[in-house]
């Protein structure tokens, strides 16, 4: 009886996989431009943005059904995963094999970033990853302190202090003190 039930559910899983793959492909197609842009803001350069998006989407795609089953908005899920990956794992592991064979697809502009000559952009690039993420979530995503805390898994107090430090650092670098 149990075996029959298991076989049934396995067949359902198999049948639903093709549908899930198609669904995920559509999600990637639609969300890729926005995610790359968001990744560019997070990482500070389009190369790392492309790698970050690729790595996170691969992970999410390999568990797409489970992600959907959680009931979260998949796009919000991916964005949160990108912010956290960027902060906690990305810098530590990018020399390893996160993106096994990321194609040299020309997905980035020849120059590092078209914003490279902007003083504010340069100042942002100099921030530690978490401070930068807090600023991006605040000013790019327009999230509240509570939402940022929830996204990054830190306290509101930490969000406030990180924001304060980041803004002070930006002002100093821009000579706005």
């Amino acid at each position: 009886m149990t075996a029959v039930l298991r076989l049934g559910s396995a067949a359902e899983r198999g049948g639903g996989r093709a549908e899930a793959v198609g669904d995920f492909a559509e999600f990637v197609r639609v969300s890729m431009p926005g995610l790359l842009r968001y990744g560019h803001a997070l990482t500070g350069n389009p190369h790392d943005a492309a790698d970050l998006v690729q790595a996170v989407l691969e992970k999410v795609g390999s568990r797409w059904v489970a992600v959907q089953r959680k009931g979260d908005d998949p796009l919000a899920y991916v964005r949160r995963a990108m912010a956290n990956t960027h902060i906690s794992i990305w810098r530590r592991r990018r020399r390893e094999n996160l993106v096994a064979d990321f194609p040299d697809s020309g997905a980035v502009e020849p120059e590092l970033s078209r914003l490279e000559n902007e003083p504010l952009w340069q100042a942002l690039r100099a921030l530690p990853p978490r401070q930068r993420a807090v600023i991006v979530l605040r000013y790019y995503e327009n999230l509240s302190e509570t939402e940022i805390a929830d996204t990054l898994g830190i306290s509101c107090g930490t969000v406030k202090s990180q924001t304060s430090k980041a803004m002070a650092s930006l002002r100093t670098r821009l000579g706005k003190d």
Partner: peptide
């Protein structure tokens, strides 16, 4: 904005 290569989606799908 970062230019999206036409192969980017396929690369993600293959990787996943």
């Amino acid at each position: 904005d970062v230019h999206v290569s036409p192969e980017a989606t396929d690369a993600v799908l293959r990787g996943a």
